[in-house]
Design a protein around this nucleic acid. Structure first.
Lengths: 293, 293
DNA sequence: TCCTTTTATACTCATGGTGAGTATAAGTCT
DNA sequence: AGACTTATACTCACCATGAGTATAAAAGGA
């Protein structure tokens, strides 16, 4: 009845958006995510996570949600379980040696589709994937569906990374099954940390569409443009300004503070704040089914 | 650097819909979910889960997705981590002793809002929750938001269960902090298995709205009514027939088989099958943001 | 045989959200 | 003062959705 005991590793993807760039908190010069094993003293998984992030980066942890759990084969030692989390914050002013913020898109340059910034990367990747697919119709369909010109779906971050992995086009894959030829641009990470980051980005891109989590990344007061640019940074997509505004207003997510910006070019913008009340009111409908009565 | 080793427990919520009733596979006469510790031989978490479910219930596992991971304090022994999964299948014809299918709504009678079946339960629960809330405005808001007459949100299954737990109205809570007074109708489960079931129901209710997972629960060929009733069983809501049909058709989720039903009362219904192609075509848009260009 | 019952399927109509684009307001900068 | 820049307001066509009604095609009983 007694199963084998395992090590439990807690891994954090801590995200922020600064100056319109989404960033992630790393250690080891951008090569790893903050992480450490669950210990005796930790009363819960989140407690353990908080402890490790604060020890390694001295950065406080705000909003946190669980991402995914999987069994990893720690080479040599006993097997381990990795439990990953996504956290949202704003970058602290003070820096801590060893901890660095890096742009998401250093790791996934092909994911930033704002004004076609990703275009050259995708153009370089596609022929190599097509070569890999060869005559295999299933592979071809996946390649075109994920990287093809028809309707880029920004939520499929993980699927795209895994495809590159399988095609041996990322360095991490080489460590597993030695491949031939070169790899694709994009910063590498240890173990499967880059896969975890991809999971985090995908989750966040999906979530901002139906839950008001963006506000965790913004200061207390912000302009419509701040809000829009933060969304665009996360989604990796440019948004239609008037319609974005209308969307936010009709959902009553924000309220005016009465203040405006000044000193910048152009007409001063109103400052808004998030309406905390939404969190209670909204059980979020998310309906889609034609209820009766 | 060496953290405390832990036990990893794998827990499965295996769901099916039979004759318009959503059901869950249990052991111990409906008192527990299939589960067991991760062992040396298991190559992945899902492998381990499959092994345990098949050993305890002899039921095959089809579509599976991860639910949640948390640290539980197994009393006495070393601490443990519980990793829960949701699986979707059809009930096998052969039965295995010790394994039983039970209706979801035996465990959560207040969640079945089809033609007001839940009404008497909600009516009985509400005054007791209001009593518990007392003058506390935060508590009152939660009670009314979750159980109140205004817009029942079928996705908040977990939140409702947790509220009842905190109010000490479910037997499981009594084991933790002894409470006074009676409990509310609804079958009890061991440990936090009922909480896990609530998580599974909530996840599935959310997911059927944007991913074609219902078809995992249906036979290969089915009528529109079969499909609708399966959805209704999961959502715990009655749906508008013409609009439901239109929704399915415009999304091109199914195709006609050419066959029809016969022998039953009323006009024969066309038989449909799921269009497997959707799984490839659709990266599922889920858009909501006003993209530009 | 015909009529009732039952279920399936097809239509109608008003409404509101969404995509796309244009027009005006109100500041800085030169 | 005029050019420039950004913010904000408005328009219009279209389509998905909520709600309800009408017709089709079988079974079953009088």
């Amino acid at each position: 009845m007694e199963g084998g005991a395992v090590q439990a590793e807690l891994i954090a993807v801590l995200a922020a958006v600064t100056d319109g760039e989404p960033r992630v908190l790393t250690i080891g010069s951008g090569y790893a995510l903050p992480s450490g094993p669950l210990e005796e003293g930790h009363r819960s998984l989140q407690t353990g996570l908080r402890a490790w992030v604060e020890r390694q980066t001295h950065h406080p942890l705000g909003y946190v949600e669980q991402l995914y759990t999987f069994a990893g084969q720690l080479p040599g030692e006993a097997r381990g379980i990795s439990i990953s989390y996504l956290g949202l914050t704003r970058e602290a002013v003070t820096e801590y040696p060893g901890a660095e913020w890096h742009g998401w898109y250093e790791y996934f340059p092909w994911e930033d589709a704002r004004q076609d910034r990703s275009a050259p990367y995708v153009a370089a990747i596609l022929p190599r994937l097509r070569l890999w697919a060869g005559d295999d119709a299933t592979r071809q369909a996946r390649v075109e569906g994920l990287f093809g010109a028809e309707g880029w779906n920004e939520e499929l971050v993980l699927q795209r990374y895994e495809l590159l992995w399988q095609a041996s086009l990322v360095p991490e894959a080489r460590r597993a099954h030695a491949g031939e030829g070169g790899t694709v641009p994009g910063r590498e990470m240890t173990h499967d940390h880059r896969r975890i980051l991809a999971t985090a980005i995908a989750r966040l891109r999906a979530k901002i569409k139906y839950r008001p989590v963006v506000f965790e990344l913004l200061p207390r007061e912000f302009t419509m443009l701040d809000l829009q640019q933060t969304m665009e940074a996360l989604a990796g997509q440019t948004l239609h300004k008037p319609n974005f505004r209308r969307l936010i207003e009709q959902q009553e997510l924000v309220e005016e503070t009465g203040k405006t910006t000044s000193g910048l070019a152009g007409r001063p913008a109103k400052l808004f704040r998030f309406r905390q009340a939404v969190l209670e009111e909204r059980g979020v409908s998310g309906t889609k089914l034609p209820r009766v009565k």
